[in-house]
Simulated assay, not measured.
Amino acid sequence: MKIKEVILRHMKLDLLHPFTTSFGTEYDREFILVEAISDDGISGWAESVAMLDPLYNEETVKTNWHILEDYLIPIVLKNEISHPDEISEKLFAHIRGNYMAKAAIEGAIWDLYAKQQNQSLSDALGGTKKEIEVGVSIGIQDSIDATLEVISARLEEGYKRFKLKIKPGWDVELIDKVRKVYPGIPLMADANSAYTLQDMDSLVALDDYQLMMIEQPLAYNDIIDHAELQAKLKTPVCLDESIHSLDDARKAIKLRSCKIINIKIGRVGGLTQSRKIHDLCKLHGIPLWCGGMLESGIGRAHNIAITSLPNFTLPGDTAASALYWAEDIIEPEVTVENGMIQVPNKPGIGYEPNMKNINKYTISTKIYKENL
């Protein structure tokens, strides 16, 4: 495979509703859309999930553009690529970090590769599922009553799992009231690193509510304190921000820092690394699920494909397009029926880019060609 051209588009989509977590509120989503075009004219698509500000991790839209433009795209344009695995394993191996930038260009090439092989991206990755269970992530609301209203609406739409964002002061009372109204729903809490071991009492108190898991309660770069916390909790700890690589996952499993791992393709550096972490976790009996980063339909399509692998046994965050956007940038949009998404069987990501909407929501575009 020879990549002859890469196009970066700076996109902006307005969220239908503000999304609040322990580190702030998002009203819109700015991101980089990547299109990689081969010498036979096939396009592959992916997106960077980096945020505008370095809140979730150190990467941003601007730093991703810089790394893509000055380092990653030149490497891709000057090398023949026989398989997408070569990108992270060989071509980008000398470049430290910048996992979201790496994942964005690698994901576009995975889509392109699958199309060239006349395979769905799911099949190219080794996926086995024809449909996937999905849950929904519910941001911090203005009140507990407002949270209950959102849960009620999402229940009617058939979602299989409910993730509530928590932070100190917005945790035990919230979960207690939700459990009293909805005693049987699959429920989890996501702290986005808002706690320390000094908050042990509040976290242990959540053991009374039969949660599926508590996601990333402690520091974003920690696996040591999480091991201490997990030893004192009956509720499984799920690691998110702490897992950036296969080696991070190996260490967390060895230290017993968690019982569940969330994979976000961008956070771990791409689909190849996601698949490696999947295989390691399967070997050790650690269940997986796929997290979300408020992706457009392009990113959601990649999440659907990776979730089709067999050890993604818990419902992920890949909700329907219509929950977030007035209109998405793919055709058809991602839809959920009875809490399930059908895994596309068309070549590549299985959704067509909606060029009218892509052009409508593009802030700027830059084209890169070899020797230019």
Results as ranks from 00 to 15, higher is better:
317 D>T: 11
306 I>N: 07
214 I>V: 15
184 G>W: 08
333 E>Q: 09
146 A>D: 14
34 V>C: 08
323 L>N: 15
123 D>S: 14
97 G>W: 10
60 T>D: 06
229 L>N: 03
41 G>R: 03
127 G>D: 02
25 T>I: 11
77 L>M: 11
188 M>F: 04
328 D>Y: 06
92 F>K: 02
16 L>A: 01
226 H>L: 04
32 I>C: 02
26 E>L: 15
304 I>R: 06
371 N>F: 11
40 D>P: 03
281 C>M: 09
293 M>R: 00
344 P>N: 08
219 A>M: 06
55 L>Y: 15
50 A>M: 05
48 S>P: 13
11 M>K: 02
54 P>N: 10
357 N>S: 12
108 A>E: 05
111 D>V: 03
80 E>H: 06
327 E>I: 06
125 L>E: 10
291 G>I: 09
273 Q>T: 14
216 Q>L: 00
16 L>P: 10
134 V>W: 02
265 I>R: 07
318 T>Y: 05
221 N>F: 11
328 D>E: 06
92 F>H: 08
187 L>K: 04
287 P>C: 08
132 I>L: 12
244 H>M: 04
84 P>V: 02
349 I>L: 14
243 I>N: 02
6 V>F: 10
364 S>C: 10
137 S>Q: 09
362 T>N: 11
23 F>R: 11
49 V>N: 07
371 N>W: 05
151 I>M: 03
217 P>T: 09
358 I>E: 04
82 S>Y: 09
14 D>V: 07
243 I>Y: 04
372 L>N: 15
151 I>S: 00
22 S>W: 02
61 V>A: 01
333 E>T: 11
247 D>F: 14
341 I>V: 14
218 L>I: 06
329 I>H: 01
314 L>R: 01
346 K>M: 10
353 P>T: 02
225 D>A: 08
258 C>K: 01
290 C>D: 09
98 N>F: 12
139 G>S: 09
198 Q>Y: 12
45 W>Y: 13
73 I>A: 07
159 Y>S: 06
370 E>I: 14
97 G>L: 08
50 A>T: 05
243 I>V: 13
361 Y>Q: 01
53 D>T: 12
146 A>S: 13
299 G>N: 02
316 G>Y: 11
161 R>L: 14
180 K>L: 13
28 D>Q: 12
224 I>G: 01
98 N>L: 01
159 Y>L: 06
316 G>S: 07
146 A>F: 00
102 K>A: 04
259 K>R: 14
203 L>K: 02
25 T>D: 07
82 S>Q: 12
180 K>D: 14
202 S>T: 13
145 D>P: 07
1 M>H: 12
132 I>H: 03
136 V>G: 02
294 L>H: 05
302 H>I: 08
213 M>A: 08
175 I>Q: 12
110 W>E: 14
210 Q>K: 14
354 N>E: 04
189 A>P: 07
355 M>C: 07
138 I>K: 03
162 F>E: 00
351 Y>G: 13
329 I>A: 00
108 A>H: 04
200 M>I: 15
372 L>P: 07
52 L>Y: 10
38 S>P: 11
303 N>L: 01
120 S>T: 08
282 K>C: 10
232 K>S: 10
321 S>N: 06
303 N>A: 00
216 Q>I: 01
177 K>N: 14
51 M>G: 12
93 A>L: 08
120 S>N: 11
89 E>I: 03
136 V>L: 01
255 L>R: 10
127 G>A: 07
140 I>C: 08
36 A>W: 00
320 A>Q: 05
337 E>G: 00
